[in-house]
Write a protein that binds this DNA or RNA. Structure first.
Lengths: 369, 369
DNA sequence: TTGTAGGCGTTATCAT
DNA sequence: ATGATAACGCCTACAA
């Protein structure tokens, strides 16, 4: 009887031997279930069960145990539990950067949902570099995350570094910038439909020569889908497609937006509308237009994409496509949690499309004149 | 000889019994140092040492071990190592929100530095709620983070929930919104000096009636320091202090900025300059001023704080105070790493002040006329 | 309802 | 230079 739970007892000697925590320091050893067991003359397994309200433990014991745990300042050792159960309760996030408004909102949504479920969120940034993405994926894998949420780096063409998660049945959710040929959960908006809507909105406002910025690699097919929507909207309304009005940019930065806008607005026959696949470049367009003496929206209507904070601050207010960032984050996290909860095989090819809408502000408002 | 390393062998039976991973699934068991040991007819301790280039292991063995590890797809189990060593290699971050440009940049800096050192970053948001801050602190504590970086919630008056970390010798770094009476690492800017510089800049531009927005609780003394700098700059230049021009706001939001600006610009004797403690409210001031027919900077010069992305996009460009967000993040992480590296007692009362500068754009440029 | 025992994977200590 | 062993704290199959 008095011999049980010995291991920890012996080790207590170390409290006095360990240089880093001599007995006079308050850096006291953590209380374990063994300590509670000894105090209550119970076994460690009973404590373990009681703390989790196991059905086989009597009400009375459960109460005693919990009271003692509280009093002794017990905190469960997640590491030990994880090692034993092989489950970590952490979600890994791997995105290009966290400083873009869309992505920081996305992560915020993930954090809120994870938080509630008692999960930790580990973040990593690829800075749009393929190599960093590969390295971070490896690091997260080694950290034994229980699920991964990722948005691809611009550079990424090959996604085999995500396969390791699938092989271990660790759910992977791609958000927004998703790969074409990788079977796993995806949370995205319908970029084609959004591009179509945005363009049609300009057409409805009376634009007949609509320009488009078009960006990035073909792999994360997000921008090319928006472009398709743009083209099809023109077709539907019998408007000619003028290649001169479709400008490619490498990055969707303010500078690239300025460059593209300058090209467009110096054409002999400049556009009367621009559909920009991003708010930053749309704002650049507004500024360049104003500088060159174009009136927005009278001479040139502009619509962006994302509903970034600037879009409501710029004058005139930028019309844009709403992009439900926080909701996408929450949804992604929910998918992970659901996958982990269910014991059966999940269908990981599920794709969730979230809704987007035209948010009309002044920059496209030609009709009220 | 053939009996050693038995434990794992026996357990292998479970591979066939475990419902979640029957033998025909590829969800194979992780390779452990025992597996390598068996294959090479060595002991697990030798493997463990070899993998860490321990000096007592022969070159030859180290090579053999590493080759085998690679070939067998070994990955170290961080959980087991952490449990054993009581060290986790994770940094916890507890901030009001990650969607503010300043904070997302801060976290980005933290992540970059942590990444390089092989640390994970766990993020949590308090949403400026005291209760959430307390809960998140507890959760991070239970996750056994090795260090904490935090910026206080607006609501927070009491910081005793951070004491648990100090008691366990877990380094805590407060950034930007730091508590007055809590002895630990702090990384901040000199808000007093920055407020002084900003105000003096406006005075040098010829302003003689300078207004100021003033926000938030007194506890995180950041805004009150900026205000002190403002007041002292006026004094130094023998300008009167007019209480009418000092407007308190509860939050530093766009809406509050609009409200405050409207009050100011409807005064009989409106200001000819505004020092806003934040870019968002400064931008609001620009917009309100323009709407009311004030010319910026001719009638009203404005300077903000932070150098948020909007400040260079708004027209006229917003003069502001640079706030080295990424650097603050990197510095905070470095402090944590340094603390963890050193075996001696550290001086945790160290305060690091980072430099800020006036970044003059058009919104305060009265002199070039 | 409660207890026993052994293992999760690694590492430090003490041998050899 | 290498090996045996116990311990980190928790959990669960099996026993009582």
């Amino acid at each position: 009887m008095y011999l049980k739970n010995i291991p920890n007892k012996i080790y207590l000697k170390n409290v006095y031997l360990n240089k880093e925590s001599p007995f006079f320091m308050k850096e006291n050893k953590d209380v374990t279930i063994y300590d509670i067991a000894n105090k209550l003359k119970l076994s460690s397994s009973t404590i373990s069960r009681a703390l989790k309200d196991h059905s086989s433990i009597s009400e009375k014991t459960i109460k005693r145990v919990k009271a003692a745990a509280l009093e002794m300042g017990y905190r469960p050792n997640i590491l030990a539990a994880s090692l034993r159960s092989k489950k970590t309760k952490t979600i890994g996030v791997l995105v290009p950067t966290i400083t873009q408004p869309f992505l920081s909102s996305l992560i915020s949504g993930i954090e809120i949902t994870a938080q509630k479920a008692g999960y930790n969120v580990i973040i990593t940034q690829s800075h749009d570099s393929y190599q960093d993405e590969v390295n971070n994926a490896k690091a997260l894998y080694n950290s034994r995350i229980s699920g991964l949420i990722s948005s691809l780096a611009m550079e990424t063409q090959d996604t085999s570094h995500f396969q390791q998660f699938i092989d271990k049945n660790i759910p992977v959710v791609f958000v927004d910038r998703v790969p074409k040929n990788f079977n796993t959960y995806k949370v995205m908006i319908n970029n084609y439909a959004a591009g179509f809507k945005a363009t049609e909105h300009l057409i409805n406002q009376g634009c007949i020569r609509i320009a488009h910025f078009y960006a990035g690699s073909e792999f994360g097919n997000l921008y090319s889908e928006r472009k398709k929507g743009y083209l099809d909207a023109l077709k539907k309304h019998n408007l000619p497609i003028d290649k001169e009005l479709i400008i490619h940019m490498n990055e969707v930065t303010y500078e690239e937006g300025e460059r593209a806008s300058n090209i467009l607005l110096h054409l002999k026959n400049p556009p009367d509308g621009i559909f920009s696949p991003n708010d930053t470049t749309a704002v650049a367009a507004i500024q360049v237009a104003k500088k060159l003496g174009f009136k927005v929206p009278e001479d040139l209507a502009i619509i962006g994409f994302n509903d970034d904070p600037i879009s409501r601050i710029i004058v005139p207010g930028l019309s844009t496509i709403t992009h439900p960032a926080i909701k996408m984050g929450k949804t992604s996290a929910e998918i992970i949690l659901k996958h982990l909860d269910s014991t059966e095989k999940n269908d990981i090819t599920e794709i969730t499309f979230l809704n987007t809408e035209v948010l009309a502000r002044e920059s496209s408002n030609k009709l009220s004149e």
